[in-house]
Design a protein around this nucleic acid. Structure first.
Length: 585
RNA sequence: GGUCCCGUAGUUCAAUGGAUAGAAUAGGAGUUUCCUAAACUCUAGAUGCAAGUUCGAUUCUUGCCGGGACUACCA
């Protein structure tokens, strides 16, 4: 349940509510709170309250009601002016109220601790399900950036979250890779970048298998692959030993990417670990009559839910992805006490998860109704879909290297040449900025829309981008440093009257609203939109208001305090997307 | 065929059912003796089509058109 956390709306709403009460009507505080919105522009006022919803209760036209209420509102500490336009009551607030209700709490830190929800279930968010023996590419990065951001956002809002990952370390892709590596490949194993090399082995193998379709060579390959899978199942033999060794190369690459991205999982589930138990689980329910035999396989007919036939055991008795996900869910619920379960997986798996959730429900798991598949669209290249099978991927580490190199060359090299910063400092900045550009780019687009990944465009980084926000913050830091901002100096918020300043105050007051809404709708792009909007306003302020030449020392200090407020909000917002801020750039 | 997702400026993206549909890029014109020009200002340009619900629809419903995903032994 959501709490009324925005103090401006609470105070304003209370004034409106008690005025309506004096007119003889009763409207709930929550209704009023949620109806308060922004005005179309700053000339009209700061916040707006439309009278539409009151029309039915008060039996008058919205414009009449708006006028009636506006005229009856008494003098108070919050409102400076009411400007009624048709059905809208537009309120302009006293600047010191922004200071009291928003700026001071932000500077003191209490604003970021505000409880926004209550009674939330213990929730697991599962994300990043990469396969070993394949290379991580920019498509995986969308998942990682989304998952990491959503977890940070949920925790900020007060949700209890357990994060988990579910890498695929068994399956035919492993067999293809190992077959190619041992029986076709002649290259020596490299000493560095083994994970990426292994991914190449997989690609080569998949491509070759496609080329030799129907030939004797394919039959031979299939035989070997069957043997590989058999050894993996019984966990012994030459191929099993190779699997153990090569699997680690991929795991090392995963860790390299996760470390770079700064993501941590509370729980690691492995497909190889749930595999055997998932088959046991399926057999158990087959014996109970829950699953039935059909065309040699075992599963359940979900046709009446329009979900087809859900297979849990193949003709040869082995399990499938679906089987593993059932066992995995059981573990989450029963071993971990998870009440709500969010899966961040691309949209291809929509039907798969509908089947999983339906089966869990039919098995009697209460938590099934709290399972949610957050589906997202793919990352596509301008030339078409990305596929490691077809070798048309852009590996994450390659993107990172290109991005860092570009940022260094374009913006930082000259500073190094002029000895303004050291080479190592510049490399560090390039790394932080590249990370910001990549993560921001991945979450700024609506999850339901595909991302067209154009490497050249991404490297350019201008406009609505991570580096834009980082730049704004870095510039604030340097300004405060150069102008000697004193956090303990005198502040008088009422001195802020410039439209650019008011605009910032209004926007900054909506941070928690934006964060809560973005979290509950699983839309991190709402956060990027909010931050971008705030940054644009800040750049307007920066260009219109010169702090260095501000003569009044209290005003100068107050303006710097406002910048400090913006910096805190921007940096918090970026941090919740997993993005850091360089001190300089 | 069935189910689901997406159609907004040339392009890439925004818009709790609400006031004049916002940006960025590309195009045109400007801003630096001044705290970081990775910036700012001005200019031009868009809701696939057709009904319906509503005081009010880019948003909700239905149909059509266009694109994508899924639809039993891969994950």
């Amino acid at each position: 349940m959501n709490l009324l956390h925005n103090d401006i709306k609470v105070e304003l709403g209370d004034i409106i509510r008690s005025t309506i009460e004096e007119l003889g009507f009763n409207i709930s505080m929550a209704d009023i709170y949620h109806a308060i919105g922004r005005t179309p522009n700053i000339e009209s006022g700061h916040f707006a309250f439309p009278a539409f919803s009151l029309a039915k209760v008060m039996r008058k036209g919205p414009p009449v009601i708006a006028k009636m209420i506006a005229e009856k509102i008494p003098e108070n500490d919050l409102i400076a002016e009411i400007n009624t336009v048709g059905p809208y009551m537009n309120f302009s607030l006293k600047t010191e109220a922004f200071g009291r209700l928003v700026c001071n709490p932000i500077l003191g830190g209490s604003y970021f601790q505000k409880p926004m929800i209550q009674d939330s279930p213990r929730t697991m968010i599962e994300y990043s399900q990469p396969n070993t023996h394949k290379e991580l590419h920019v498509g995986h990065m969308r998942n990682i950036a989304l998952g990491d951001a959503l977890i940070r956002m949920h925790r900020y809002c007060g949700y209890e979250i357990v994060s988990s990952t579910f890498p695929g370390d068994v399956g035919t892709h492993v067999a293809k890779c190992l077959w190619y590596m041992k029986h076709v490949n002649t290259e020596p194993i490299p000493t560095k970048g083994k994970g990426a090399w292994l991914g190449q082995m997989y690609s080569n193998g998949a491509l070759l298998l496609n080329d030799i379709k129907g030939t004797e060579q394919e039959a031979e390959a299939r035989e070997i692959m069957t043997e590989i899978l058999k050894q993996l199942e019984v966990k012994e033999g030459e191929y099993f030993d190779i699997w153990k060794e090569t699997r680690q190369w991929s795991v090392d690459l995963m860790h390299q990417v996760y470390d770079w991205a700064g993501v941590k999982f509370d729980v690691w589930y492995w497909e190889s670990d749930v595999d055997a138990d998932s088959v046991k689980f399926a057999l158990e329910h087959y014996n109970k009559g829950f699953f039935k035999k059909s065309k040699g396989a075992v599963g359940i007919d979900l046709e009446k839910y329009n979900l087809g036939f859900a297979m849990v055991l193949k003709g040869d008795g082995s399990g499938l992805y679906l089987t593993k996900d059932l066992e995995l869910a059981r573990r989450k619920f029963q071993d971990y006490g998870i009440e709500k379960n969010i899966y961040i997986v691309d949209k291809r798996q929509e039907r798969h998860f509908k089947q999983v959730f339906k089966i869990l429900e039919l098995l009697g798991f209460e938590q099934a109704k709290n399972c949610f598949h957050l589906k997202y669209d793919f990352v596509r290249l301008p030339t078409g879909p990305m596929s490691s099978r077809e070798g048309t991927i852009i590996p994450i580490m390659k993107l990172i290297a290109r991005m860092e190199g570009e940022i260094y060359g374009e913006y930082l090299k000259s500073q190094v040449d002029n000895s303004e910063i050291s080479e190592s400092e510049a490399r560090e900045i390039a790394s932080v900025v590249a990370k910001g550009a990549i993560k921001y780019g991945m979450v700024k687009i609506d999850t339901q829309k595909e991302i067209i990944f154009n490497l050249e465009e991404w490297i350019k980084i201008s406009g609505n981008s991570g580096p834009y926000q980082q730049y704004v913050c870095a510039r604030i830091s340097r300004l405060l440093e150069k102008q000697g901002y004193d956090p303990n100096g005198e502040i008088d918020w009422s001195l802020l009257v410039h439209p650019a300043e008011i605009e910032l105050l209004i926007k900054v007051s909506g941070f928690n609203d934006a964060m809560l809404s973005a979290t509950q709708k699983y839309q991190p792009n709402q956060v990027t939109n909010y931050l971008y909007d705030l940054s644009k306003s800040l750049n307007v302020f920066y260009n219109d208001v010169n702090i260095k030449d501000t003569e009044d020392s209290v005003l100068k200090n107050t303006r710097m305090a406002l910048l400090e407020v913006i910096w805190k909000v921007e940096s918090r917002g970026l941090a919740l997307l997993g993005i850091e801020i360089p001190k300089k750039m």
